[in-house]
């Protein structure tokens, strides 16, 4: 009886990022083509790996794959890319697509045992929420070693004999880490912002305005406060809940907007309108800041839920009240 063997297939890659790779990362950060920024799952060879070379596991989100390989200059290694549907390691691990099952499948599909003599795979530590190391070993024979959180520590990790320091094992949320996540937050608000401007324009046409330049920059400012300023200043803003932090800065912004318009001294900027801004603008910032929990590295589901149970009703009531006041203000003037 003839036993047909499956073809052994590897894909060559390098540690060098091209201009196109870098541009792709930049675009993804701005939300352009972020959901189609993929590489094919499979076994990649970097340098000239042999049967003793380490096997590094990654996700098929191109930014994950690129940030791994660019740290491997001068190394010979295998990169086993799992099919995570184009999602990064940490998020995919949370969903389970970067998981025990997919790792076992991928090891079997690429026939990893035919490429390496050892029985170890290095999985990024942030993949651990999806992987059960003892189960992988039980079903495949491969031992999972958790590598450092950051790919840039990989070389040192290997040099230390596959040992990570506590420093390498801890997730940080540096100013830069938060900063690179803000563009996508901002872009995410564009669609809803355009709808709001559309509604205000219609109200103007119906004679319920005038909504003008003050409303425009008041709103845009509140969005920037919630999406950019609050995330950047996060650890320095007093309090713990994200919505609170956003609200606080938004409140300061609302006061600034009112003062810039002569507070209540100027007749067109009445007390009702000023109060309306104080109710609406901080709520917008609070909501957007609350959404940044998803980009942070230290918020728990239970915590976010607790925060939202207070914040969401408060935000809705505050915005409704504010809108009523501003509309009432227009009617009084009519």
């Amino acid at each position: 009886m003839e036993i047909t063997s499956r073809e052994l297939k590897t894909i060559p890659t390098t540690a060098e990022l091209t201009f196109k790779d870098t541009l792709g990362t930049w675009k993804a950060r701005w939300g352009i083509g972020r959901m189609t920024f993929n590489v094919d799952p499979g076994l990649y060879s970097l340098g000239k790996p042999d049967t003793d070379s380490p096997v590094l596991v990654s996700a098929n989100y191109k930014m994950s794959f690129d940030s791994l390989r660019k740290e491997l200059k001068g190394l010979n290694a295998w990169i086993l890319v799992l099919d995570t549907k184009g999602i990064n390691v940490w998020c995919a691990a949370g969903k389970g697509t970067f998981g025990t099952q997919e790792l076992l499948n991928r090891i079997a599909i690429v026939q990893l045992e035919k490429f390496v003599a050892h029985k170890t795979v290095i999985v990024p530590q942030l993949g651990a929420p999806g992987i059960s190391a003892h189960e992988v070993r039980k079903y495949s024979g491969f031992k999972v070693i958790y590598g450092p959180v950051k790919a840039k520590d990989l070389k040192q990790f290997i040099r230390l004999g596959m040992q990570a320091t506590t420093e390498m094992r801890t997730v940080r949320s540096s100013l830069y880490d938060r900063l690179v996540l803000t563009p996508v937050e901002l872009v995410g608000t564009f669609k809803i912002s355009l709808m709001i401007f559309g509604v205000l324009f219609l109200l103007n046409l119906l004679g319920l305005g005038p909504f003008g330049v003050v409303d425009f920059y008041g709103y845009v400012g509140a969005v920037i406060v919630g999406c950019v300023i609050t995330p950047i200043l996060l650890p320095w803003i007093p309090g713990r809940a994200f919505a609170w932090k956003g609200w606080l800065l938004g409140f300061i912004w609302a006061i600034i907007v009112n003062v810039l318009n002569g507070w209540t001294a100027v007749p067109e900027h009445s007390i009702l309108r000023a109060l309306g801004y104080l109710l609406i603008l901080p709520s917008i910032s609070a909501f957007l800041a609350m959404n940044f929990t998803g980009s942070s590295t230290f918020t728990s589901f239970s915590g976010v839920l607790k925060e939202m149970k207070v914040a969401v009703p408060a935000i809705i009531i505050s915005i409704v009240l504010g809108v009523v006041l501003i509309l009432a203000n227009t009617f009084i003037k009519l």
Binding site: G94, A128, P129, F242, G294, G303
Partner: peptide, 26 residues
């Protein structure tokens, strides 16, 4: 703790319990 669930998933002795979830308001 951010409830990522990595510890529970990798405890071969089921000594750890945590409700795994995403800390993401959106």
């Amino acid at each position: 703790c951010m409830e990522c669930g990595a510890c529970a998933k990798n405890c071969a002795f089921n000594a750890i319990e945590v409700k795994q979830g995403v800390g993401c308001a959106f």
